[in-house]
């Protein structure tokens, strides 16, 4: 089995963030300035190159958007969102006023307030996606960590499931999706569904694709506990549960978290693809709708989504890192 390490690809971002935090913790300003200088230069060069190169790329929807258009569309999308919010608020106030009138005439009348029926905005889609990815990731974690512990503890079990893991691990979300869709449609029948089917489909696809790194890292971490510490546990005659809780788990926490961070990254990537393909609400659907829409602004709006996806992915990883620092003893 292979272990997954995510640290290399992050080092740049890490340095950048550390520079920020150290500024807060009172390091000298000159030092901070020096550490921020190179990333700033990098971003500036990229923006410059993008600005110059974009107009050269002609598509059927006009030139490829440059930074200026993308910025403009960001404002536009935000504007649409707040307009939508205002209208929704108005819609609710109108209903409330109407209900008051009805109640005034007939105190026993049944009144209700319907949700605003407008299409979800870009911001709404972001939150839908975040909800789905977290649900899928949490489910993957709940499955992968205990299973990984069992695999790591038991050599025979490990030998039995290892081939399965190796085979399922590289499967693309696109291959799972049709199967998951059909199974969800067939098995999840309820008159008053707690979850949307599209939500379940995306979530399960995310789970299936993202549980492998956590599973593998947990099992490797558990099986690689320092043999001297295992001997200590034996000399103390720790019970199985105490052994797992006090020795095995803490010792593998760093490995588990490395796996969790890779898993979360994969979950986020898979989700966007799943949403595009399954037409389930979220950022992926936003991108797909804009693509189908084909207006002159579509490319800029897709570009906004691309940047948002990247930024959120980065943010999710930072959050995991903060949790890891809280939990893991070697940080």
């Amino acid at each position: 089995m292979t272990t997954l390490s995510h640290t290399d690809s992050l080092s740049q971002g890490q340095r950048w963030l550390r520079a920020l935090t150290e500024k807060l913790s009172g390091r000298s300003l000159a030092e901070t300035g020096r550490q921020l200088l190179l990333p700033t230069i990098g971003i500036a060069l990229f923006l410059g190159f993008w600005h110059l190169a974009a107009p050269q790329v002609q598509t059927s929807l006009g030139a490829f958007p440059g930074p200026a258009q993308v910025l403009e569309q960001t404002g536009q999308l935000w504007q649409e969102h707040s307009n939508q919010r205002d209208r929704a608020a108005q819609f609710v106030t109108m209903q409330e006023q109407r209900n008051e009138r009805i109640l005034a005439e007939n105190p026993d009348a049944e009144v209700k307030i319907r949700d605003y029926p407008g299409a979800p905005t870009f911001i709404d889609q972001i939150f839908t996606s975040l909800g789905t990815v977290l649900a899928g990731f949490v489910l993957a974690t709940i499955i992968a960590v205990p299973l990984g512990i069992i695999i790591g503890l038991n050599r025979h079990f490990s030998a039995a499931v290892n081939p399965l893991i190796q085979i399922f691990k590289p499967v693309s979300p696109l291959a799972w999706l049709p199967l998951v869709t059909m199974v969800v449609s067939a098995t999840y029948v309820s008159d008053d569904p707690m979850f949307e089917k599209s939500f379940l489909t995306s979530m399960i696809t995310v789970t299936l694709c993202s549980l492998w790194p956590t599973l593998i890292n947990t099992s490797v971490g558990v099986s690689a506990v320092n043999p001297d510490l295992l001997n200590v546990s034996k000399v103390l005659r720790l019970s199985f549960w105490t052994h797992v809780r006090k020795v095995v788990l803490p010792s593998s926490v760093p490995m588990i978290f490395t796996g969790l961070r890779v898993s979360l990254g994969i979950a986020w990537m898979v989700l966007i693809a799943a949403e595009m393909l399954a037409q389930s609400p979220g950022l992926g659907k936003f991108v797909w709708d804009e693509f189908q829409n084909g207006s002159s602004e579509s490319l800029s709006r897709i570009m906004v989504a691309v940047l948002a996806i990247g930024f959120i992915g980065f943010l999710l990883d930072r959050i995991m890192l903060v949790i890891q620092k809280k939990v893991a003893w070697n940080e």
């Binding site: 510490l229 001997n231 200590v232 000399v235 006090k246 020795v247 003893w329 070697n330």
Partner: peptide
């Protein structure tokens, strides 16, 4: 009880 060749303390 054993005192191991390399302390063998739980680092966490």
């Amino acid at each position: 009880a054993v005192v191991f060749q390399n302390h063998s303390l739980m680092p966490w």
